[in-house]
Design a protein around this nucleic acid. Structure first.
Lengths: 189, 189
DNA sequence: GTCTATAGTGCGATAGAC
DNA sequence: GTCTATCGCACTATAGAC
């Protein structure tokens, strides 16, 4: 029998969301989360740089979904098409199974400004990753920046809509609609 | 004679930037900033909700510059034109006199992730203000959201370029170029 | 204006896996 | 022996409560 159970991060993340949902983010201490899964506060902070970070664990994998979508676009495709491909790929990542989880998580975030800040930071990190990917495929600045920021913005707007109560379209469908709106916006006037 | 010296916030903000520049954000305590202008830590936190906030004091006034630009656009102008007008107005706000200050401030922010987070939060606040202004002038969602987010994105990208060493174009000029790039991006593909 | 809880850090010790 | 996850303790600064 192993001395430590595997999946410590995941257990901490799950317990954190439950406690935050039940009693609020500020009312929950890091020590409490750790204790609830049989660990100490010090171990919590070994896994997460700060208390907020425990809610943003999956970030890396969905950033990867964007990058996969960038790679899936044919070489020489215009930036707009590359962004569309990235959004489709991300849309596939957030399947319907994740929606309930995303809603619970978002409710916690929306109740706390410090968590909203962290979420915006993650959005910026996504844009930075997209930017690097655009540069890597030969798109120069400022086009690369504009494409990357647009991808992050469209995703963010689409995601907000995706988790709205009653919404049942897929994230990919919604994102495609928002991206079309960007085109309309830029064409008019 | 006044009981307190006026401009307490400004003196704190100025002293904070100096200390942060000289010895770093984390190495500077709120108490130290307060002491350096003859006040107590408690007074510092009466003026600023947290230590980071002292670097983001001017936010409200430049958000107003955006909103003035929105109002300056003729009724019925397409969202793209409204955004262009807002960016011109904001460009006027950041005159050349502010550039050196902005550079010093940005150097501090770039050295600290927590400050970058706050900056992104302010960018989001700007987008929210623009969103409300677009709705108020009759632009419905999702067009209003797209316009507001684009305004914030273009400003952010243009601002980064504006404070780059050696850059001497005005912010308005740079922003106009970035906005044109958005149009190109959305038209191609 | 003081008092206090909690976030977060630094360092050393321990205990298994390899 | 090394490596890594965990714990324990002391500590500071932030930030909010009283």
């Amino acid at each position: 029998m192993a001395r430590w159970q595997p999946g410590t991060r995941e257990r901490l993340a799950r317990a954190a969301l439950e406690l935050f949902s039940a009693q609020g983010f500020e009312q929950t201490t890091a020590a409490e989360i750790a204790r609830s899964v049989g660990l100490t506060e010090r171990t919590f902070f070994r896994h997460f740089a700060d208390k907020r970070e425990v809610l943003f664990d999956g970030q890396q994998s969905f950033t990867q979904a964007f990058l996969d979508g960038v790679e899936a676009a044919p070489p020489g495709a215009p930036p707009f098409e590359v962004v569309a491909s990235a959004l489709r790929s991300a849309g596939r990542f957030f399947d319907d199974e994740r929606r309930a989880f995303a809603r619970a998580r978002q409710a916690v975030i929306e109740a706390n400004p410090a968590l909203q800040e962290r979420e915006r930071h993650k959005r910026a990190a996504l844009a930075a990753a997209m930017h690097a990917a655009m540069l890597a495929r030969g798109t120069a600045d400022p086009a690369a920046s504009v494409a990357a920021e647009t991808a992050a913005t469209v995703f963010s707007l689409a995601f907000q809509q995706w988790i709205r109560p009653g919404e049942d379209r897929t994230l990919a469908q919604i994102a495609a609609g928002v991206l079309a709106e960007v085109r309309r916006f830029a064409a008019a006037g």
